[in-house]
Nucleic acid binder design. Structure first.
Lengths: 194, 194
DNA sequence: TTATCATCTTAACAGTGTCAAGTTAATCGG
DNA sequence: CCGATTAACTTGACACTGTTAAGATGATAA
């Protein structure tokens, strides 16, 4: 049997990935530092060489999931069949909801006790802002920015769209929600209802 | 000094109210059974005469908050200036968002680890369903039910409306969201954007 | 080679939810 | 009014939690 080395080698990343794995399997409520330590085969206090606290690890895990989500959204926009801005907007919205339907535990994990900074104004510092929201802004600008929609109306539209898509993800990932149809097939109908 | 009686008298309700108080003050993350016990002046295990577990108390607290929300929504619909169905729908949506903006801690508490049963279908058992959602259904029926909108479209509309309003409440109550305008004044613009 | 230092361990602490067993006093049948 | 029953409480204990303090390990660099 291979003797476990004293030094793990890549503990920081292992903790993040094992933690996300644990959340995905058992839900955010069952998460504990010591469980993640056991999954990684280290002692209870090993994480403190890489993170200041449990919350610090959780933030790193949130950043990692946010990055996964951003990649999925970028992929959806990129793989959009038509080269149509409005079509890309729809595909992005669908991907946002589907990402959380496919990983239901991620929603609560990301947005309850949410640590990410989100600036809803049009002139936010896009490098620090929640990337999915910045993506939404960019596309909305392309769709409605040219024909002289007012800045205020444009901002309202962006918030409206994110609220709709985000709310749908919230509802669809609730534990005790009953819906007899196939979410994936209905997302578009529900979002673009008007 | 009045000697504390051995029996509390109204411990069940006191636990629920003290628990909600605690959540409102410190957030759902800081909640603990033993803290609520201290607030009520009883021992750590006293709640087990009234609740099976911590989760059981939390469910009772959620029911209580849901009832408060339902009363606020009913009040808003009732106090609606115009006797117009569409106007009532708007007022209800505004009240929903404002309820959580005024009590930000309630949102995460109610909907993460949400215990309430929600049936999204049109023919749900309305007595067991999340009351605010049943209220929404009733009003949407009055607004669009008469002119022959299809059942499926009607259902889509209801889910769309709830998602929008619910998502806006979610966004507006996030900890690190920056919004330089007054939510109360902008809710209507954002929701009825199209 | 030796010293340094990031990485890890063991031991301990207070706080958590919950079970088992015992105490208190309100209630009810005679 | 009295004694038994029993719901509502307390004390004590357990395993589990996050975190600190002190020490062990071993990779790296002078």
């Amino acid at each position: 049997m291979p003797n476990k080395p004293y030094h793990h080698g890549d503990l920081r990343n292992s903790l993040i990935e094992a933690g996300i794995e644990l959340i995905n399997r058992t839900g955010a409520g069952q998460f504990s530092l010591r469980k993640v330590c056991k999954l990684c085969g280290v002692s209870q206090t090993a994480p403190y060489s890489h993170f200041q606290s449990k919350e610090d690890l959780l933030e790193a895990m949130q950043d990692h999931v946010t990055q996964k989500l951003t990649e999925v959204l970028e992929g959806a926009v990129h793989a959009c069949p038509e080269k149509n801005d409005q079509r890309e907007l729809i595909e992005m919205g669908k991907s946002y909801v589907l990402f959380f339907i496919n990983n239901p535990q991620y929603f609560q994990f990301l947005f309850s006790e949410a640590s990410m900074r989100i600036d809803l104004s049009l002139d936010s510092d896009s490098s620090k802002n929640f990337p999915p929201f910045e993506m939404l802004k960019t596309i909305v600008f392309r769709v409605w920015g040219k024909n002289g929609m007012s800045k205020e109306k444009l901002e309202d539209t962006i918030i409206h769209l994110w609220a709709t898509v985000h709310g749908l993800a919230s509802i669809a990932t609730m534990k005790n929600v009953r819906y007899d149809k196939d979410w994936a097939a209905k997302i578009e109908d529900i979002i673009w209802n008007k």
